[in-house]
Structures are given as structure tokens and as C-alpha cells.
């Protein structure tokens, strides 16, 4: 898993099978990694609905599909989504680095019980599925949450 420079301002086109974006908002998710003393981390940032069912992948950091099984929850939940990587994948993120991801979300997803989740895995270190779970609400915007192992803080902002 390679280190990559800071990934800032990545625009992710919102052209997937989602409710029409007639009333949409752009969300920017900022993920700051801890200096956990390992190689670059594989991360999966995704949305689940109120029942815990997979909704959509926002970003997958890490290029080798054979390691996705270490992002166990995302890999299991999104298995049926044939386009889960379409335009939303990049290189793994080095320890101490920051990943910024932007995505267009329909208003209907906000304050509707949806949750942003992040799975993380680092080679030779333990996997951390559900490293972070953060409800997608207007009130939570700008509030940083720490992960269990690898994430210093994750926060999102609406534009």
C-alpha cells in the first residue's frame, strides 16, 4: 500500500444510481490519519441507510482489489454493487496524511437516518471495519469524530 501525496479537492462526479440530484448538496469529507506507524492505509468511505443497508460508496483509497476483503464491512455490504468503484477510487493514504473527498448528495439523504461509515485496513496491522460511524445530519456538519485505530478525525461540511 503506497503512500500518496495529500489528496485535496477531489471532485467526485455524482452520476450513479441515486435519487435525482434535483435538490442536492456538495459534501466534503475530511479524514485525517493518525501517525500509526505503518504503511499506507486502505480506506472505504460509504453510506448506509437507517436499517444498516448499503447505500453508496463515497471513496475507496487503495488500488489493489485483492486487499478489499480487509475492508470487511464495506466489502460485504457493497458486494452486490457492481459500480461501487466507478470513479471513486484512488491511492492508499499514508500515516499522518489527510484525505479530502467531495461528493454530491441528494437532500433526501440528510437527516434521514443515513450514516457515513469508514472501514480501514493497514498491511500487517489489524483490520478496522467500522473504524468510524457518523450519522449524516445537518447538525453533525463540522463536528470531528475520532476513529478507533487509524483515524485522528473525520468531519464533513456541506457547501
Amino acid at each position: 500500500m503506497n503512500k500518496t501525496p495529500l489528496l485535496a479537492g477531489l471532485i467526485v462526479a455524482g452520476t450513479f444510481a441515486l435519487p435525482a440530484l434535483a435538490h442536492g448538496r456538495t459534501v466534503t469529507v475530511t479524514t485525517q490519519l493518525k501517525a500509526y506507524g505503518g504503511d499506507g492505509a486502505y480506506l472505504a468511505l460509504y453510506l448506509v441507510d437507517a436499517k444498516g443497508a448499503y447505500a453508496r460508496t463515497l471513496w475507496v483509497a487503495g488500488g489493489k482489489a485483492k486487499y478489499y476483503k480487509h475492508l470487511a464491512d464495506w466489502n460485504r455490504l457493497s458486494a452486490a454493487d457492481g459500480r461501487r468503484l466507478a470513479g471513486v477510487s484512488g491511492a492508499s493514504v499514508g500515516a499522518g496524511r489527510t484525505l479530502k473527498v467531495t461528493a454530491d448528495l441528494a437532500d433526501a439523504l440528510i437527516d434521514a437516518g443515513y450514516e457515513i461509515r469508514l472501514d480501514a485496513a493497514v498491511e500487517n496491522l489489524r483490520d478496522s471495519p467500522a473504524e468510524i460511524r457518523l450519522p449524516l445530519t445537518a447538525a453533525n456538519a463540522g463536528r470531528a469524530q475520532a476513529g478507533r485505530q487509524y483515524i485522528q478525525s473525520l468531519s464533513y461540511e456541506f457547501q
Binding site: K64, A65, K66, Y68, K69, N75, R76, A79, A80
Partner: peptide, 13 residues
């Protein structure tokens, strides 16, 4: 380097 795949990634779900 991914020239040879040795295990299936299929999750049983």
C-alpha cells in the same frame, strides 16, 4: 503485481 490471482475475493454474503 496481480499477474496471477491466487484466491477468490468472492464474499458469500
Amino acid at each position: 503485481l496481480g499477474m496471477v490471482a491466487i484466491d477468490s475475493d468472492a464474499e458469500p454474503g
